[in-house]
Structure formats: C-alpha cells, structure tokens
C-alpha cells in the first residue's frame, strides 16, 4: 500500500513538471510555432529561479516569505520568457527554421544551466550540489494535518501550492483558448495565419506573445522541478532535459488540449515511474537494463496515440494546421 502511495505521490510531482512544460508548449504551438526548445527553456527557468533564490537566501538572515516566493518565480518566468523571445525573433521575424531554432535553444538553455551550476558550486564549495532550503521549505509547505488524513492526505494534499497551480493554469488556459475572443484569435493564427491577417488580427504580435508566455510557463516547470522534485537542490547532474522532451511528446498525446494535459501528464509520470515502482509493488525483480527499457513507455504510448489519432482522422484532434510553417504575407 505504501509503495503504491509513494508511486502516485512521486508521479504527481513529476507529472506536474511535465504539465507545466506541456502547457507552455501548447500555448506556443497554438500560434503555429513548434518550439523544440522546451528542455532548454526549462533549464533556463530552473536555473534562474534557483540562482535567484540562492542569492537572496544568502544575502539576508531573515528572508521574507513573500519575497522568497515572488523573486524566484518571476526570475524563472522572465528568464525562460527571454528564451521564448529569442525563439520568436528568429522564427517569426527572421522566419528561421523552427525545428533547428528550437533544438539550438535546447542546447543553449542546457549549456547556460550547466555553466551556471559550476559557478554556484564554486560559491558553496560543494562537490555535487547547492541548495536553497528556505525557498524550498516555502514552496513545499502543505496543509499541516496531512498526517492525520492518511492515504487521502498523502495522495491529494501533500504538495506545495505550485502543484495545484498547474491544474488551475491548465483550466484557465482551456477557458482562454475556447471561450475568449483572444483565444479564438490565437487559434486562428495557428490554423490559418492568412485568414487571421485578413480578419485584422495582428499575427506577429499574437505569435510573439504566445511564444514568450508559453516559454515563461515552461520556465516555471523547470523551477518547480528544482524546488519540489529535487527538494531545492541544484545538482550538476539533473535530468531536466528528459522531462522537457516528455513535455513535447505530451502536447501531441493530449491532442493540443490543455484539459487533456492534466490527466495525461500524471499518466505519463506513472508510466515513467512504472519501471522503478512496479517491481517493488508486485515483488517481481527485474534487471536494471529492463528498467531503462520500461522508462520508454510514455514515448511508445505517444506513438500509439499518434497512430490511433491519424487513423481516426478527426480533424479536431489534429495539431494547428499551420504548425511549423513560417507566415509570409501574400506578396507578388
């Protein structure tokens, strides 16, 4: 029983990281831009958030709780947003190839994170990681009476507020896309920018805002990974990049719908941790090489979903029609 609860518990935390990344990428892709820089953006956000918290904690003996929350959150969002801005400048204004730009952004983000972590380690003198414990404590604080609520409390109430914020964000994003005027306009930009342009929508502005905002959300995902999943430790060897790719795959899995991203990201995380948890749960021992194979399950499921979605041919389940295409205004 306990191992089942701990499997679910770790999956919800891990799934939340994926959810942030996927929501940011859904926002971006709805504008017709396929940003493969999600892992890089998560690194940027994670590093900026952690570094700002680390610096703030060391600068004062009595850190203010509100500032502990706001500074890293803003820094994470802004740093990744700048990454998104760079991406949109290259792909929207200069019309560079989106795939190449995204991959370059991933390399850039991972590189900056790695470079920065060397600096952080030299400050603390530690060999493997540095830690922002006060920030982590604020972010992972949960309802005090969890212990009394038993399994229910452990499964549903034992997380920091960002975990719930992710679900709220998904719902808000869904409402924005489906029930607001600007959401409709944004979807039109991703489906058919020529039509959107003719309807008087500022296509470039929408693409920029969606890409930058989407980037910022990915960045919060990276920060959440450091602060909640890694308990506030920035280690020189973290596997943020793998989560980033899971998030990109999840966008397809959730058929570009934020509300699907909620359950789908938890499912992805459950599948991802199946390899380590299932043997303990069932008592079957498996070789470590098989564990690594089992970790591929989310990707295999994504491929299966793609196959099923393409045979069903339901147009509503496809990605934005102009995804990945640069928009040129018709000119002779």
């Amino acid at each position: 029983m306990n191992s089942l609860i701990s499997w679910i518990h770790s999956s919800i935390i891990y799934g939340t990281v994926i959810m942030f990344g996927a929501l940011g990428e859904i926002m971006t892709e709805k504008s017709g831009h396929l940003n493969l820089g999600v892992p890089g953006l998560m690194y940027l956000g994670g590093f900026a958030g952690f570094a700002s918290a680390f610096v703030y904690e060391r600068s004062t003996d009595n850190p203010n709780t509100l500032l502990l929350i706001l500074i890293p959150l803003l820094c994470a969002f802004l740093a990744a947003m700048l990454g998104g801005l760079l991406y949109s400048f290259l792909t929207v204004t200069l019309r560079a190839n989106q795939n190449v730009t995204g991959l370059a952004l991933t390399s850039l983000g991972v590189g900056i994170g790695t470079f920065g972590s060397a600096r952080l380690l030299s400050v603390t003198g530690s060999q493997s990681y540095s830690v922002a414990s006060a920030t982590s404590a604020v972010y992972t604080a949960n309802i005090n009476s969890v212990a009394n609520l038993g399994a229910f409390g452990q499964i549903f109430l034992s997380y920091g507020f960002l975990t719930y914020a992710a679900v709220l964000l998904a719902v808000l994003l869904h409402l924005f896309l489906m029930h607001t005027r600007r959401g409709l306009n944004l979807r039109a930009v991703g489906e058919n920018p020529g039509t959107a342009d003719a309807a008087g929508i500022n296509v470039t502005l929408y693409k920029y805002i969606a890409t930058c905002f989407g980037g910022g959300i990915c960045g919060i995902g990276g920060f959440y990974y450091i602060i909640e999943y890694s308990s506030g430790k920035w280690s020189s060897q973290n596997s943020l990049e793998a989560v980033g790719w899971l998030a990109v795959a999840l966008v397809i899995f959730s058929t570009w719908k934020p509300k699907n991203a909620i359950w789908a990201s938890y499912l992805f995380a459950l599948l991802f941790w199946m390899a380590t948890n299932l043997p303990t749960l069932t008592g079957i021992r498996i070789a470590s090489s098989v564990t690594e194979l089992l970790k591929m399950t989310p990707y295999i499921v994504t491929i299966l979903v793609l196959i099923i979605a393409s045979t069903r041919k339901k147009i509503e389940n496809r990605g934005p029609a102009s995804l990945g295409l640069s928009y040129f205004r018709e000119e002779r």
Binding site: H179, T180, R181, R182, G183, L184, N185, R187, A188, E191, N192, G194, T195, A196, A198, A199, G200, I201, I315, E316, R318, A321
Partner: peptide, 27 residues
C-alpha cells in the same frame, strides 16, 4: 470575398464570423 476563401477549417461558421472582431473578453 476572395477567390481563395479566408476561413479557418476547424472553426464553426459562427466562430469564423466573429474572428478578429473587437468586443468583450468572453466570446
């Protein structure tokens, strides 16, 4: 009305009509 229609395929007729129009935040 152009020869090549400027319509978004996955939208309904009504959604296409209101596309790009000013108005309240909610549709």
């Amino acid at each position: 009305i152009h020869q090549h229609f400027k319509l978004v395929d996955v939208f309904t007729a009504a959604e296409n009509v209101v596309l790009g129009l000013p108005g309240g935040m909610l549709l």
